[in-house]
């Protein structure tokens, strides 16, 4: 079976946000609707510091807490492990957003320009057609791009080449190899939540990654 997943090498991530900005702008996401982010940690005292950048996105969990709470059945998990929201049946109630421990969802209450009253721009108008008010939106591992045979954008655009995407169940895939090579350096976020994320982080530093979520 196919189980899509991602390995993000934090030893390479430089925190530039090519991933999160690219995700938002290439999709023309409305104001407040963001599928990808980067958190930052600094510990220690000058000059002995540890700085870590942690890119976040939907973890495409094996046990997604967002799916359990969805009152309309709009959230489903595909055969490939990717969690999706059916915009037509989603009512934008926000329960999934509350349930997701990773803050990976956005509730689009209104489709608003990133330029406020000065917008929307021609670029936004083009994309806004496909965003509908009162809908939960989230990362789909670029399902639309993959359908067209294109690479997942945050993987492709990363200037540090820090991300690997593919089928975790296929031992010959780049992502499975990267995970195997990472060994004990690979970890998931908020493991104790029991969500079993499909996004793994390769990290040799000393900071506690879960600290970004207050855990």
């Amino acid at each position: 079976m196919t189980r899509y997943g991602m390995v993000i090498n934090l030893d390479r991530c430089i925190g530039c946000r090519a991933c999160s900005v690219g995700c938002a702008v290439s999709r023309g996401l409305p104001a407040g609707d963001r599928w990808s982010g980067v958190k930052e940690y600094v510990t220690g005292t000058f000059p002995n510091l540890e700085v870590t950048y942690l890119p976040t996105l939907c973890m495409q969990c094996e046990n997604p807490s967002c799916l359990e709470v969805c009152p309309t059945g709009a959230t489903t998990k595909g055969d490939d492990g990717v969690v999706t929201v059916d915009a037509a049946t989603c009512i934008g109630c926000g329960m999934c957003d509350t349930a997701c421990p990773y803050g990976a969802r956005s509730i689009v209450n209104k489709v608003e320009s990133n330029h406020g009253a000065d917008g929307p721009t021609a670029h936004e108008e083009h994309h806004f057609v496909t965003h509908v008010a009162n809908t939960a939106e989230k990362c789909t591992f670029c399902a639309d791009r993959r359908e067209k045979g294109e690479e997942v954008l945050c993987v492709k655009t990363c200037v540090a080449d820090a991300r690997t995407f593919g089928d975790l169940d296929d031992a010959s895939s780049d992502v499975a190899k990267a995970l195997a090579a990472a060994g004990s350096k690979a970890q998931v976020l908020l493991e104790s939540a029991g969500t079993s994320p499909s996004v793994y982080y390769l990290y040799s530093g000393k900071n506690k990654l879960d600290d970004a979520f207050g855990a």
Partner: peptide, 30 residues
């Protein structure tokens, strides 16, 4: 199928995470 009430119950175990996610999230809430 969940109602709002039993959602709160079901989510109880993950309440700590939910609260934290709220604090860190920028998207508008319903």
């Amino acid at each position: 199928r969940l109602t709002r009430r039993n959602f709160m119950k079901a989510a109880g175990g993950a309440a700590a995470f939910a609260g934290l996610a709220l604090a860190g999230c920028t998207s508008p809430k319903p």
